[in-house]
């Protein structure tokens, strides 16, 4: 047992040195380091912003409109160009309706306006659009020879729901859409309701 005393003493001395290893030796002053050590830095990674892509979509369909106490039915074409990310999109639309009233009087509606698209799920989108344009119909009476068209300015709003049927690898899609809308048509009547127009559209479209 007496032979182990030097070993115990050596172990105690090593423990004491290790315990005070960070303290400056007596008589010495600790000078703070001017720059932090290399291993103290933290790298903060920013979340990547959603990729923005060009939005190009168009559709062809049929429209029905009730205006001026008359029924209007037409073929409907539309092209929208803008930008989008995985959640929302915004674009400019140009729409053309070409058809006839219930009696067969030809008419056209051409509108332009902004649209705001919301991607509700992977396949479903909702859109809100504003329209500014003109409604034109062609006369049948004697005046048609020298003044064939009657024009009225229109302004309106519409809501669209579209469902993707087939999707491509580049985020494009073949889709169906349904739309309802309200337009005010410039007219000569005194009441607001006379110029009011309600419309519905069903179409098949493609998003590039």
């Amino acid at each position: 047992m007496r032979g182990l005393r030097p070993l115990v003493g050596l172990a105690a001395a090593l423990f004491a040195v290790a315990a005070h290893a960070d303290e400056p030796a007596p008589g010495m002053v600790e000078i703070p380091t001017p720059y932090p050590a290399q291993d103290c830095c933290t790298v903060v990674a920013r979340a990547p912003s959603p990729p923005t892509t060009v939005l190009v979509q168009g559709h062809v369909g049929v429209s029905y409109r009730r205006a001026l106490r008359e029924d209007f039915a037409a073929a409907h074409f539309e092209l929208e160009v803008g930008g989008q990310d995985p959640n929302i999109g915004i674009g400019a639309r140009v729409s053309v309706e070409a058809g006839a009233t219930r009696i067969g009087l030809p008419y056209q509606v051409v509108t332009l306006g902004p649209a705001f698209n919301l991607h509700v799920s992977g396949r479903v989108q909702l859109a809100l659009g504003l329209t500014f344009g003109v409604l034109v119909y062609q006369r049948a009476s004697s005046r048609s020879d020298f003044d064939p068209n009657v024009w009225g300015v229109t302004a309106g709003v519409n809501g669209t729901v579209s469902v993707d049927l087939v999707r491509t690898r580049r985020d494009g899609a073949l889709f169906v859409l349904a739309r309802i809308g309200y337009d005010y048509i410039e007219n000569t009547g005194d009441s607001f309701t006379q110029g009011s127009s309600l419309g519905a559209t069903a179409a098949l479209g493609y998003r590039y």
Partner: peptide, 16 residues
Amino acid sequence: AEGIDKGELECEEAVK
């Protein structure tokens, strides 16, 4: 654009 007149439209439809 002069605006649509309801009576005028009805007359044009009758003529058509």
